[in-house]
Amino acid sequence: MNNVFVYCELEGNKVADVSLELCTKGRKLANQLGVQLEAVLVGTHLDDVEKQVIPYGVDKVHIFDAEGLFPYTSLPHTSAVVNLFKKEKPQICLLGATVIGRDLGPRVSSALNSGLTADCTQLEIGSFDMKVKDAEGNLVEKHYKDQLYQIRPAFGGSIIATIVNPDHRPQMATVRDGVMKKEILDENYKSEVVRYDAAEYIPSTDYVVKVLDRHVEAAKHNLKGAPIVIAGGYGVGGPEGFKLLFELAKELHAEVGASRAAVDAGWIDHDRQIGQTGTTVRPKVYIACGISGAIQHVAGMKDSGIIISINSDPNAPINQIADYIINGTIEEVVPKLIKYYKKNSK
């Protein structure tokens, strides 16, 4: 009761990175609250799967292993989690802000009548004071301690909002891949493993969606792990401009990322978006090309080692967090970077 839960996502029997990152975060939150960290895994052929999560400091692993639970479909996974939560009454539930997490999280929150905050960039524990009506209908201040602060940029990026759910449990949040860091706590961590009879939790009528066909490809790029990222924004001006960035990337052995404005304009693939609703990167060097630096973008790159901003506007907000600022246009500066890199690397 009252513990921190992480719903761990599976591809086959491999636990997703984002879920392990959340176990690490969940461990820290559980320590602060003085409670246990528990993980839920729902899938098919899950022998030994607990070994992947326990080292991250998971005290108890709940496993639902049955035919029909992989690939993921909405209703069976919802029933497993909702019925488990009705018994276990967690205070916090974390999920990846992935296709699966965003399909499942809202259903669970709706079924349990609890709040859910999408795409959090930070999670903290703190207190909250709110005016509530007492028995006589007078407004009185009520103090809530040990609340989960669900922190995310909001509204066009000019603000960061801290969301709390004082009166409803579990407090639910989704977090994108790469936002939290995964760290093994102890290879020999001691944990309890419970395997359930799935049929007791999941009615057979839940298996109504059939996956007829499925293709999953490994990512075409390694944006998350690249030591140098060259990111293009709206200021790149079009697909031609991105060609220049790819040329520079080839020279520097870098990966190309993008802002949402560039993705929305259709100049570059969606899976290269960096930011709150894209990938989070922490490269050694981040070269922001024609990116203004909205908070949703910065949320996904602010922990980069060295930030270089190329922008025609000397007052672009991104320049505030840059180590090097080049005042100039992409058209002019990027070819020069290529030229002088080639010249000096010979």
Binding site: S114, I160, T162, P314, I321, D323, I326, G328, Y340, N344
Partner: peptide, 30 residues
């Protein structure tokens, strides 16, 4: 169920930085 506890305006903490022009000399020196 969700309440907004606080909203904070974003003020980036300005770092010490080097500002360059797009001239050949500046780009090459970088």
């Amino acid at each position: 169920p969700t309440n907004v506890k606080a909203v904070k305006n974003i003020v980036f903490k300005a770092k010490e930085n080097k500002t360059l022009t797009s001239s050949d000399a500046d780009v090459e020196s970088l």
